[in-house]
């Protein structure tokens, strides 16, 4: 079972050890400071954006925050549970389509849509997680990919809801019957509040007893079992939580661009989520936020320099993989 020579045992490097040992307290505090600085930046960004082409910048930052939420959720299972999900975009898609389908039936209430999003993504996570977590390592990567592809093809076949072409939403969700979210600034701060809330929630989960068991399972599932924990149950709960949070990000994404499409669920999107987490630094919670921001901002900046920006972006990813162990956060920690 623990035959490391077989491909069954996925090579997933454990992120650097952190909190728990007293000597590792310092990085955690620095991380909190970084998170706080990022949130403060997001909070005043609209004021700065007023100077330039505000609508465009604001929209970019909203997108970065939404993907940061999705990447954060992936970090819970990938960074803290060593569960490499290659189908995480499915949950984002479920959130998108929960909004889109309800909208198409003229149910525009935010709370109803949010409830549907969370229930649907929790249910999907529970069913697919219960099956996927029976497999290990590389096989887990592949089975989550399979489930992601199933949702992808399911949405392409939803002819009543746009099929391949996707579905344009008539408006954003209504709050108590008002269209207050149509105001971009209000929506901006709603997304920011979700991001801060998700971060605080995940930080609490990771620091709790549950989080410690999850990390113990990452390090050595057999030992955890030996001291009386059932890794499967903890991993499944983490998988469901991560799925629901990713669903929330999908809910916000649909509201942001007022359009949903199967393209959000393709395997490349799942790959991008993994890349955001690894790029920023997995198992840190701040890393995924940094990763999502870097990914989207770099994309924008490079796209302004040349339309062939992928010629620069691709090799950059290769360089990060080769030389920056632990992602951007790990790179700077070594410098410090």
């Amino acid at each position: 079972m623990l035959d490391t020579a077989s491909p069954a045992a996925a090579k997933v490097a454990a992120p650097p050890p952190e909190a728990g040992a007293t000597s590792a307290r310092a990085p955690l505090i620095r991380r909190e400071a970084l998170a706080f600085a990022l949130f403060a930046f997001f909070a005043i960004a609209p004021a700065i954006a007023q100077v330039g082409a505000e609508g465009y910048l604001l929209s970019l930052v909203i997108r970065a925050m939404i993907f940061a939420i999705a990447a954060l959720s992936l970090d819970l299972i990938l960074g803290y549970g060593a569960l490499v999900s290659f189908g995480h975009a499915a949950f984002v898609g479920i959130g998108c389509y929960a909004v889109g389908i309800l909208m198409a039936h003229s149910v525009s209430d935010l709370f109803v849509q949010l409830l549907a999003t969370l229930l649907a993504s929790a249910l999907f996570a529970l069913v697919t997680g219960a099956i996927s977590l029976r497999t290990k390592g590389v096989y887990f990567i592949m089975i989550t990919l399979a489930f992601g592809q199933m949702i992808y093809f399911l949405t392409t076949s939803l002819a009543a809801y746009g099929g391949d072409d996707g579905l344009t939403l008539p408006s954003r969700s209504a709050v108590f019957g008002t269209d207050v979210l149509e105001n971009d600034l209000v929506f901006y701060y709603l997304v920011l509040a979700c991001l801060v809330g998700v971060y605080a929630l995940l930080r609490a989960i990771v620091g709790s007893r549950f989080g410690r068991v999850l990390r113990g399972t990452r390090e050595n599932p057999v030992r955890m079992q030996a001291i009386g924990y059932d890794p499967y149950r903890y991993q499944l709960v983490a998988y469901v939580i991560a799925g629901m949070i990713a669903g929330l990000s999908g809910f916000l994404l649909a509201n942001h661009i007022e359009f949903v499409s199967p393209a959000f669920i393709s395997w490349q999107r799942s790959g991008e989520l993994i890349i955001m987490v690894v790029l920023g630094g997995m198992g840190t919670l701040v890393g995924p936020i940094v990763g999502a921001m870097s990914f989207l901002f770099l994309e924008e900046i490079l796209a302004r320099i040349t339309q062939d920006w992928k010629l620069i972006f691709g090799p950059l990813l290769v360089l990060v993989a080769l030389f920056a162990r632990g992602g951007i956060l790990g790179f700077f920690r070594r410098k410090a």
Binding site: K11, A13, M282, K310, L317, V318
Partner: peptide, 23 residues
């Protein structure tokens, strides 16, 4: 390297070559 770094790097190569053939 571990699987995640392989995913990161080979994904970068996909981006590069897909764009490269376009150029």
């Amino acid at each position: 390297k571990d699987h995640l770094e392989q995913v990161l790097a080979t994904f970068g190569i996909i981006l590069f070559l897909n764009q490269g053939v376009k150029v």
